[in-house]
C-alpha cells in the first residue's frame, strides 16, 4: 500500500534522511521506532509532502507521489496526523472532523448531511468528542486533541494513515487509552504507519517494525524478532 525506497530528505543543507526504505502492507500496523533525532518525523514529513524528498521514491497504492504537494498527496488517500497534533484551534471539534473529509465532500452546502454517517462512527469511537463537538478544538485537553487528530485522519477514509507520536506530552493513563483505540482500529483493518517513542507499546500493537538510526533503517522485523535482538533490546526496550 505504501512503499518507500531509499528516501533522502532534510532541511536546507542538513540532510536528515540518508536513504530510508520501508513498506506498509494493506491492513497492517507498522511501527517506526528509534531515538530522538533519528529521522522518524522527517520520514513522515517526506512521505506526506510536508517537505520535499531530495531523492528516492514514495509509492502510494502503486502511484509515485514524491515531489507532489501535501494537499495532492492527501487527496490521493494518505492521512498524516502530524507531530504535535495540529488541530485547528479556533474551529469547533466538529468542523475539524469535517475538514478531515474535505476532499471528498461538496464545498458549499450539503456537506454536513453527507458526512453524518462518518461523524457518527468517529463519535462512537471517541464519545468524548461527541460531548465536545461544538467546543473550540484549542480548548481541549492534550489527550482529547490527540483523539481529534486521529478522528480527523480517519474522516478522510484514507488508504494509509501516518500517526506521529500519539503519546507525546500525554499522561500514561491517556497513552494507554490511545493505544487501546489503535488496537480497536487494527481489528477494523486500518493501514497505519506509527512513529512512537514508547517502543514497547508500539511493538505491542504493530505487525511489523522498523528501527531507525541516523537517518536510515538499522533493523527491521516482526515484534517477536525485535524482542530477540539484543541490540534493539539494549537501546530501545530496556
Amino acid at each position: 500500500m505504501l512503499q518507500v525506497e531509499n528516501l533522502r530528505a532534510g532541511y536546507g543543507a542538513s540532510e536528515v534522511l540518508v536513504g530510508a526504505s520501508l513498506h506498509v502492507k494493506q491492513g497492517m500496523i507498522v511501527a517506526l521506532i528509534g531515538a530522538n533525532g533519528a529521522g522518524k518525523t522527517t520520514t513522515m514529513r517526506a512521505i506526506s509532502g510536508m517537505i520535499k524528498p531530495t531523492q528516492g521514491t514514495v509509492l502510494l497504492n502503486g502511484k509515485a507521489v514524491q515531489g507532489m504537494s501535501a494537499s495532492q498527496i492527501a487527496r490521493l488517500g494518505l492521512a498524516h496526523a502530524p507531530e504535535g497534533r495540529k488541530v485547528f484551534g479556533p474551529l469547533s471539534v466538529e468542523d475539524n472532523l469535517l475538514l478531515g473529509a474535505y476532499h471528498r465532500l461538496p464545498g458549499f452546502l450539503g456537506f454536513h448531511a453527507m458526512a453524518a454517517p462518518d461523524l457518527e462512527k468517529i463519535y462512537n469511537l471517541f464519545p468524548r468528542l461527541r460531548e465536545r463537538r461544538l467546543q473550540a478544538a484549542g480548548t481541549l485537553s492534550g489527550g482529547e486533541q490527540q483523539m481529534l487528530a486521529i478522528g480527523r485522519a480517519l474522516m478522510a477514509d484514507p488508504k494509509v494513515i501516518l500517526l506521529d507520536e500519539p503519546s507525546m506530552g500525554l499522561a500514561p493513563v491517556i497513552v494507554q487509552e490511545v493505544f487501546g483505540i489503535l488496537r480497536r482500529l487494527k481489528e477494523q483493518g486500518i493501514t497505519l504507519l506509527l512513529v512512537e517513542q514508547f517502543a514497547k507499546s508500539a511493538l505491542e500493537v504493530a505487525d511489523y517494525a522498523y528501527v531507525m538510526d541516523h537517518g536510515r533503517i538499522a533493523v527491521e522485523g516482526t515484534p517477536a524478532e525485535l524482542h530477540r535482538n539484543e541490540k534493539v533490546i539494549a537501546a530501545y526496550l530496556g
Partner: peptide, 11 residues
Amino acid sequence: ADRDAAELMGI
C-alpha cells in the same frame, strides 16, 4: 489557523 495542517487535509 494552521497552514501546514490544512495542507494535510487536502486543502
